[in-house]
């Protein structure tokens, strides 16, 4: 039961973080469309790091 609550919290946190990354990246691309490629790569890398953190927490907590 507590595990499930923890998993939910992790997912909420990860979701907020991913949303921030995605949103800011979109803003960046809108501001500087010529840097879209670089922003995208950086976004994916940071997203992956966040994802790793979230998955790590999920698996350690399971």
């Amino acid at each position: 039961m507590y595990n499930l609550i923890g998993a939910g919290l992790i997912v909420i946190g990860g979701g907020i973080g991913l949303g921030q990354i995605g949103g800011k990246a979109m803003e960046g691309i809108a501001r500087q469309p010529e840097a879209a490629g670089k922003i995208q790569t950086a976004m994916i890398i940071i997203g992956a790091l966040l994802e790793g953190l979230a998955f790590g927490a999920l698996i350690l907590g399971k």
Binding site: A48, L49, E51, G52, L53, F55, G56, L58, I59
Partner: peptide, 11 residues
């Protein structure tokens, strides 16, 4: 390495 392996596995 842990984040690398867990990411791939979990995904």
């Amino acid at each position: 390495p842990f984040s690398l392996l867990v990411r791939l596995f979990a995904n």
